[in-house]
Design a protein around this nucleic acid. Structure first.
Length: 189
DNA sequence: TCAATGATTAGC
DNA sequence: CTAATCATTGAT
């Protein structure tokens, strides 16, 4: 599948998270595995985070742990949450402004529907941990995002739902979560 | 509804 | 320093 190897350019990510997040729905997350095979799936759920709103990791201060979020767009921002699960984000916007999109769920063909239905599960299935933090979203680091190949079934625009974000205690009002309503691989809560 | 589990931050 | 919080998940 040719489309898998055409990574989204950095310019795609150099825009506000709330613009990039819905556009990432339907795109593919692709990983070059150790054996040389490609693992890939369709992004079916995302959330946007932006400095200036309390749910964002860059809301309070810039620190070593959130430094990546303040950096160049098109880099991976990966952190450990609840001491157990990793969350995978793409840095968006422009440098010195905390901005990013959290990948919340991926649908993988020929695998159990809920294998990556949640941020932690997604990271687990793709083997993504802190070692990816700060790396470029490109083939160079073996993990990238690509646009949806033309030979795949088109997404019905009516399937894209915009709602409030989940799993946060502050900043609940902002409608910065998007997901494919037709997908059975979206996170539950 | 709650525990697991550890990094990070808030509060003295 | 200690306590609380946390962009989650699976079991009860």
């Amino acid at each position: 599948m040719i489309g898998l190897t055409q990574a989204l350019p950095q310019s795609f990510f150099a825009r506000p998270a709330e613009i990039v997040a819905p556009e990432l729905i339907g795109c593919l997350l692709v990983k070059l595995q150790d054996g040389g095979e490609l693992l890939w799936g369709v992004v079916v759920e995302t959330e946007a985070y932006c400095q200036g709103e309390p749910a964002c990791h860059g809301y309070r201060r810039r620190s070593p742990s959130n430094e990546t979020l303040f950096g160049e767009p098109g880099h991976w921002y990966v952190y450990l949450t609840y001491g157990i699960h990793h969350c995978v984000n793409v840095v968006t916007g422009c440098p010195n402004w905390a901005n990013g999109v959290l990948l919340r769920a991926i649908e993988i063909a020929n695998e159990p529907l809920r294998i990556a239905a949640g941020p932690g599960l997604l990271a687990k299935r793709f083997g993504i941990n802190r070692s990816y933090n700060g790396l470029v979203v490109a083939k160079d680091c073996g993990l990238w995002l690509s646009s949806r190949p033309t030979d795949m079934a088109a997404i019905n625009v009516n399937d894209l739902v915009q709602t409030t974000r989940i799993g946060i205690s502050q900043g609940r009002e902002m409608p910065w979560r998007w997901y494919l309503s037709s997908s059975k691989s979206v996170s539950r809560r």
